[in-house]
Design a protein around this nucleic acid. Structure first.
Lengths: 343, 343
DNA sequence: CTGTTAGCGCGTTCAC
DNA sequence: GTGAACGCGCTAACAG
């Protein structure tokens, strides 16, 4: 209070040496006392700790990192921060790295591969101990350069190079589970309104759905209707389905947004949901599924889980236990009103 | 290619010393050559650069930081990564710090103030040069401890301590602009369906709306209807408005979700939008405003701009030009079909 | 123009 | 039990 320069000056932060001096010991002793290593006199230690407290000593992680050879940071290279996928993944990853142990250096490369290279350089120069690369879509993406000197785990999108460790949603299984749920709730004539055909997420979900139907001796009502990932397309797709297959009793939509559109079109077409037709989506995106009426049954792909698993894989790799290959994360159906019992 | 240990071993990364040795110069000379500082012989420099290239030398930012006293990183302390506000803010901030110059260390404290303290410790021990604190709502939040030794800028939510630098959306102005737009498009009987009353964002927007109406010699149709930030409430609120004020010609909603609900309820009530009643929301959240039919006019609060401005303020502060007080970021109306011309 | 020296803050041998 | 000395990788002073 008396001779404080104030926080803005950022006066040289207190070092271990300051603590040692105040405690009347050498820096080495202070270090041991702080880290609980080695044998140090009990009261010596408490003197040191007290001094540290008093000076508000904050160990310099940079200095520590230089010595340890590990920085205690990982880089997260994302490409769709505007989207809703990388966020939960990021949260899961942050979560898995305990607070204070490992910190996350975040970069968003937009869609730009040259930006990605720059970010990569920056991260490597900061000596991150590992990297998580979050894809923009679930389609395989070009791998990072071979000579990246730290472990890399791909999340959401796998690498195009086989064997690279990756954690991705199991879209095929998601399709299967969705159909299984529809069948279990008594539906038999299932149409599928999907998203953009170039997305593996779309074709995989469709495949899973087809497989599950085939297992039950059934087929999709008409072809998979690919379109866009929009409500608009959901409306159009559902109208087309209704037109060509008035006997439809379930519309499986490849995203929650498509499903909302479908819901709306069906209602306007005089169809009751879920009494006449069940509707379900994918991703279980809260604002979509909870806002619609009835609320939307959806398949939760567990993005947070993907982030957590990716972080775990990365930690293993950093600890010298590298993994290879793609780990599929199990989705699960979240049942809501839109797939209630048929009339 | 011949004696490469492979990337997984993470063999000690190449240092400036290695480069110097290969180039046949001292480390100091190598350093100067790399950084373009000082006078160095032209061919000496190219020898060094070539050696660096060949060895894939990546300067160790940690070591550099120790010497410079600045780490070249800033901490971003967020509290609603699941939400849609901090993300654009984060993007804007990341954008404002050029690639490679400053990196962002991301932490999410959830809602937990003890977690926040832990994260803060971690960030400070990593010697971030500054901090951006992103609030959960626009309500003022408790400030970080006084003794934080680096500049802090609050974004989205200001600090409760007056004078602390903050960059926040101008909700009052947003309310004014919204009403101005409604008036300009010929509406006169405006009802306001708002969100949770505890949110300053709700009351500020309401105040701005009232003010703008008063300026035109008008009043809101009935009281501000506070409720929830949900579509469900939007439906209920709009129905109530229609009930009590059948002559309403505009429903201003405090969020895009509320507006979607309102849109739906109005249509079901036999009201045409925008011919009979205009509807608009706030935040201009793409999936909401573009998915609805008609598309929704909304007020873009410019979250990215908030992030950019916060980053700029922080950079100024880190450069010794601290700012004080709250900076309001100007919103703007994005016109879409839901406020087209009245019939 | 270039090389030598010192030191950033910390952890870790080794002697005492 | 404790302290002096060294090194992590780099850069800013000085010498040469």
């Amino acid at each position: 209070m008396t001779e404080d320069d104030g926080p803005t000056t950022g006066a040289r932060s207190v070092t271990l040496k300051d603590v040692a001096r105040l405690a009347g010991v050498s820096t080495a002793t202070a270090s041991k006392a702080m880290n609980g290593r080695d044998r140090v006199g009990a009261q010596t230690r408490s003197r040191v700790l007290e001094a540290a407290e008093q000076l508000r000593f904050t160990p310099n992680a940079l200095a520590r990192a230089m010595h340890a050879g590990r920085s205690g940071t990982v880089g997260l290279l994302a490409h769709d921060l505007d989207g809703r996928f990388s966020l939960p993944i990021l949260m899961g990853a942050e979560d898995a790295f305990g607070v204070g142990e490992t910190s996350v250096l975040l970069c968003d490369a937009r869609e730009d591969s040259i930006r990605e290279r720059h970010h990569l350089r920056a991260l490597l120069s900061r000596r991150v101990d590992g990297l998580i690369v979050v894809g923009k879509t679930t389609n395989p993406r070009p791998p990072l350069p071979e000579d990246v000197p730290v472990p890399v785990v791909y999340a959401y999108a796998p690498s195009e190079r086989p064997g690279d460790p990756a954690v991705v949603p199991d879209n095929v299984q998601a399709g299967r589970l969705a159909v299984a749920h529809l069948l279990a709730s008594g539906r038999r004539r299932v149409a599928h309104v999907s998203g953009v055909q170039d997305y593996l997420a779309a074709t995989d979900r469709a495949r899973g759905a087809r497989d599950a139907l085939a297992d039950a001796g059934l087929e999709l009502l008409g072809p998979v209707r690919y379109g866009a990932w929009t409500e608009e397309w959901g409306r159009a797709g559902a109208r087309a389905v209704l037109d060509q297959h008035p006997d439809v009793d379930a519309v499986l939509c490849a995203s929650d947004q498509i499903a909302r559109g479908a819901l709306e079109a069906l209602r306007e077409g005089g169809v009751r949901v879920p009494e006449d037709v069940a509707v379900m989506g994918f991703d279980d995106w809260a604002p979509m599924v909870l806002g619609s009426r009835p609320e939307l049954t959806s398949v939760d792909m567990d993005f947070e889980g993907i982030g957590r698993r990716a972080a775990q894989l990365l930690e293993d790799a950093m600890a010298g236990r590298p993994a290879r290959g793609t780990l599929l994360v199990e989705p699960r159906v979240v049942v809501r009103g839109s797939t209630g019992p048929p009339a």
